[in-house]
């Protein structure tokens, strides 16, 4: 037309170039403008202490070992410490999927986890009271897990003496007072640890006896007590 023949490929590129020139930038101004991830984005996981039972299922399934737990049952303290290391975490969500309550550990939508100096800050630790074996003083399970299992089983927990005794203790009941089973069933158990459970320094008693079967004891002591009988 004007003595210049523009080949079609050039025209097509020109069209795209002009469209791009007059449209908004495709990129976002991330550090200056907040980025909102999608609803189901898998970001930094958090422990929620009120819903966590301390069962440590998350630590068992974590593919990278980002969650660890340590039990301390010496010196009058009985506690389990659950720690999540966000610098090792791969945000797979297996911990949330395997959580006993489903709400004890949940992934948030936080994605900006970078720290420059203090790598130690990339962790969250929670502590849970442990119930100790009345025979050997070793930890049996966290208090909250006992409560959760007892509440879930309801009257069925009467088949396990440890669970039953715990259930009664948690209700501030004992055999002497004679608990009506109907009152226990489905009762909302307190998640507040009553004074005495877990914190009580347990004298180490060796050689579990037959009578120890009706005590809150750990599986290995129970096995020995049953074998003795």
């Amino acid at each position: 037309m004007f003595g210049i023949r523009i080949p079609y490929p050039k025209l097509r590129e020109l069209k795209e170039a002009l469209t791009s020139l007059f449209s908004k930038p495709y990129t976002t101004r991330f550090p200056y403008k907040e980025h909102k991830p999608y609803e189901r984005f898998r970001g930094r996981p958090y422990f929620y202490e009120e819903d966590c039972t301390g069962c440590a299922a998350c630590a068992q399934v974590c593919p990278t070992g980002a969650i660890e737990f340590t039990d301390q049952a010496k010196g009058g303290i009985a506690k389990r410490t659950l720690t999540i290391h966000w610098d090792i975490c791969i945000f797979c969500g297996l911990c949330q999927a395997s959580c006993l309550t489903g709400k004890g550990i949940m992934l948030s939508r936080e994605f900006d986890l970078a720290v420059t100096e203090n790598r130690e800050a990339l962790r969250q630790a929670i502590e849970k009271e442990l119930v100790l074996c009345e025979c050997c003083g070793e930890p049996v399970a966290p208090y909250d897990q006992f409560v959760w299992v007892a509440a879930k089983l309801g009257p069925l927990c009467f088949s396990n003496s440890s669970l039953l005794l715990f259930y009664l203790k948690a209700l501030n009941l004992s055999f002497q007072q004679g608990p009506p089973p109907s009152a226990c069933a489905g009762a909302g158990l307190s998640r507040q640890c009553p004074v005495g459970i877990g914190l009580k320094p347990v004298p180490t008693v060796s050689e579990p006896q037959r009578a120890d079967r009706i005590k809150i004891i750990c599986p290995s002591c129970r096995r020995q007590a049953v074998l003795k009988s």
């Binding site: 991830p37 999608y38 609803e39 189901r40 984005f41 898998r42 945000f91 797979c92 969500g93």
Partner: peptide
């Protein structure tokens, strides 16, 4: 980029989808 956004929307991550599970999918 929109394809990766779709990944983020459906699976929760742009690159590591964590969708496959023996016997099904996770999300």
């Amino acid at each position: 980029e929109p394809v990766l956004d779709m990944f983020e929307m459906t699976t929760g991550n742009r690159n590591n989808y964590a969708m496959y599970k023996i016997g099904g999918v996770r999300r």
